[in-house]
């Protein structure tokens, strides 16, 4: 009985650390669910598409400029508009999205978010050619 209670405590302690603030999710494809970071990243991307359009991606996807011109393109396919698998397997894209979600929640403007992203991720790699927001 003690063992069962201990197990239940462990279960609820770990589960209690989870993020339950998210509202209804859009109909995500399967690859989005493979990690908590991925799900949260796609949630933020879906809710903040207009910000992601003005933020460059530093993961190195610049190598394919036709496909990737800003961070939104890592989450949404530029041609079809559907969700793209790329970000689900990319730590940098997800980290950037998480930061955007946090800073947007703090009330920062798109320009301020862009500047912070540039400052934080500039060492990670070459950014996409994304124009500065006006």
């Amino acid at each position: 009985m003690v063992a069962v209670l201990a197990m239940l405590l462990i279960v609820f302690f770990i589960a209690g650390c989870g993020d339950s603030t998210a509202g209804n999710d859009p109909a995500f494809p399967e690859f989005v669910y493979r990690s908590e970071e991925s799900l949260n990243g796609y949630r933020i991307a879906a809710a903040n598409q207009s910000i992601l359009e003005h933020v460059p991606c530093y993961c190195g996807c610049k190598q394919d400029p036709e496909k990737y011109q800003n961070l939104k393109d890592c989450f949404y396919n530029r041609q079809t508009g559907d969700f793209d698998e790329h970000a689900a397997g990319c730590t940098t894209c997800l980290d950037e999205a998480m930061d955007i979600g946090q800073w947007q929640g703090e009330g920062l403007s798109v320009l301020a978010i862009r500047e912070r992203i540039d400052a934080k991720y500039s060492e990670r790699g070459e950014p996409t050619d994304t124009p500065m927001p006006e």
């Binding site: 399967e30 190598q63 698998e85 790329h86 397997g89």
Partner: peptide, 12 residues
């Protein structure tokens, strides 16, 4: 040195 990165797009 950093030489660019393209994560795999095929998750599964």
């Amino acid at each position: 040195d950093w030489s660019g990165h393209m994560p795999p797009t095929n998750v599964y």
